[in-house]
Structures are given as C-alpha cells and as structure tokens.
C-alpha cells in the first residue's frame, strides 16, 4: 500500500515536471520564433528604407577602404607629414574627452553623493537628483552639441559641454550604485567631531570609493574619445572635423583621410589598452568583466 502511494507520487511529480519542461520549451520556442521574425522583418524594413540595398552594397563594402588605402599607399612618403599635421587636432580631441570626463567625474560624484540614501545632504531631494541624472544620461551628446554650436559657434567648447553633461549622468548612476556599499562608520566618526557635509564626504566616503570611481571614469574616457571624434564630424573641432574636411576633398585626396583613420585607430587602441591595464590594477579584477560597457 505504502509502495503504491509512493510510486504514484513519483509519477505525479514526473508528469508535472515533464509538463513544466514542455511548457518552458514551448515558451522558449515561441520567444525564439518571435525574435527571428522581428530580426527578419526589421532587416527587410531597414533594407527597403535604405538608399542602396544590402545585397547590392555588400559586394562594394571594401571598395572605399581599398580606394583610401590605395591612395595612401601611392603617397606613402607623404604619410608621416600628414600624421604630424593632424596631431594638434588629435590632441584637441583627446583634450575634449579628458576635460569632459573630468567635469563629468566631479559633477557625477556630487550628484551621486546627493542621491544616495544615508549620505545625501538633503534626503528629501534624492528623487530630484536621480531624475536629473536620468535626463542627463538620456540626452545624446549630439543634441546638446548641435544646439550649442548654433549659439557658441564651432569649436571644442560645445563638444566638451555636451559630453560632460552625458558623462555626468552616466557616471552619476554608476557612482550611486558604488555608494550603496559604502561603510558609514567613517562618516559617523567625522560627523561626531563636527565635520561639515563636504568634509564628511571628502574624507570619509571618497577614499573608500575612489578606486572604483576612477576605474569607471577611465572606462568613460575611452567612450568619450569616440564621442568627441564623432562630434568633431558634425562641426565641433578636433580630429573628426579634419576627417570631414579630408573626406570632402574627394577622390585623389584620400591620403589625408587615411592618415586620420590611422591616428584615430591607434589612439583608441592605445587608450583602451592603457586604461584596461590601469583598471585591472585599480580594482583587482572585480570590474574587469564589465570592462567594455559603454
């Protein structure tokens, strides 16, 4: 009697389990089908709204790089001169990225401290500062840059401000996540001896979170170099601006564009490597896996 009831229980469990598995498989299958359908439909829509079709273009992908490289190869003797000529623009691009990262780091730190429970100067305004960061993070750099170029004229400043605003939001969010894990003991100690809020934060919190902050800021610096090159392309100075000019001279003059491509590529790879190395040392590998999130 006891045996039969045990075996029926096992049967029931097994049929339940199999039903559950089948249902899960079905869900997974449905999800997969929906996903594939979305990809195919999306591709067809994008293809039909593109000026040139995918299947016509795919055979010509390497035409342009081949042309640029061919011209660069013909004028290979000129290449070092071009590389040197565009170096100031590259430095401007790097400066835009560095300055905006620095400003974003400072502003993001302040906003993150103001929006962390337990650390906030005005606990009631936490929500407000969080929304501010959300909005700053959601605005693509190009939006602010284009509007500021209209008011301030071309040059590095609009790009710097635009990238700094986005960086503030992006870093602020990451920083406030770091702040969640801060030990409050140093802060309480400092408060008990009458330190002001700024002193509590600078002496009690920053030393705890500093390495994490710097690690995230380095990551942001990599991303901001790319952003500042792109903003140059729409008129905000730096290497991107040179690139657009070099492109507009058209066929026969692509050796300059090739020089800029090389400079930009080498810079991005070099900065990625250096910052990856520094980050690995700052956080002892805990953040290494999230290494390349923009």
């Amino acid at each position: 009697m006891a045996e039969t009831s045990a075996s029926t229980r096992v049967d029931v469990i097994q049929t339940d389990y199999m039903a559950l598995t089948r249902r899960k498989r079905l869900y997974s299958l449905v999800l997969l089908i929906v996903f594939v359908a979305l990809m195919v439909a999306g591709f067809n829509t994008a293809d039909s709204r593109n000026a040139g079709g995918f299947w016509n273009g795919i055979t010509h992908v390497f035409d342009f790089p081949a042309e640029v490289l061919g011209e660069a190869w013909e004028n290979i003797a000129e290449l070092p001169r071009h590389l040197v000529a565009h170096l100031p623009a590259l430095i401007e691009t790097l400066n835009i990225a560095a300055a905006s990262t620095l400003i974003g780091l400072i502003a993001g730190t302040v906003l993150a401290l103001l929006s962390t429970r337990g650390l906030a100067r005005w606990p009631r305004l936490i929500g407000l500062f969080r929304r501010l960061m959300d909005i700053a993070r959601a605005i693509p750099e190009i939006v602010i840059a284009l509007v500021l170029i209209f008011v301030l004229g071309g040059g590095p400043v609009p790009a710097m401000i635009a990238i700094a605003i986005h960086t503030t939001g992006a870093l602020g969010k990451l920083f406030s996540e770091v702040n969640e894990n801060v030990s409050l003991k140093p802060v309480e100690g400092l408060r008990s001896v009458g330190a002001t809020w700024a002193q509590q934060m600078y002496l009690g919190v920053i030393p705890q979170v500093g390495p994490n902050y710097v690690s995230y800021a380095l990551l942001r610096f990599e991303i901001n170099i790319r952003a500042s090159a792109i903003l140059g392309f729409v008129g905000a100075g730096g290497i991107g601006y040179d690139l657009r000019n070099a492109m507009s001279w058209g066929q026969g003059k692509y050796d300059q564009a090739a020089a800029i491509f090389i400079l930009l590529f080498l810079t991005i790879v070099a900065v990625d490597q250096i910052s990856g190395y520094l980050r690995a040392h700052l956080t002892y590998g805990t953040q290494a896996r999230e290494g390349v999130r923009p």
Binding site: R49, N50, V61, P65, L243
Partner: peptide, 16 residues
Amino acid sequence: LIWTIILARAFGPGPL
C-alpha cells in the same frame, strides 16, 4: 564613426 563612413559609401544613406 569610421565604420559609418565606410558603410555609407557601400550602402548609401539610411537605417540599414
């Protein structure tokens, strides 16, 4: 940025 420029030459302007 550079991929965009290269691909725009082959595929023309548009979402693709």
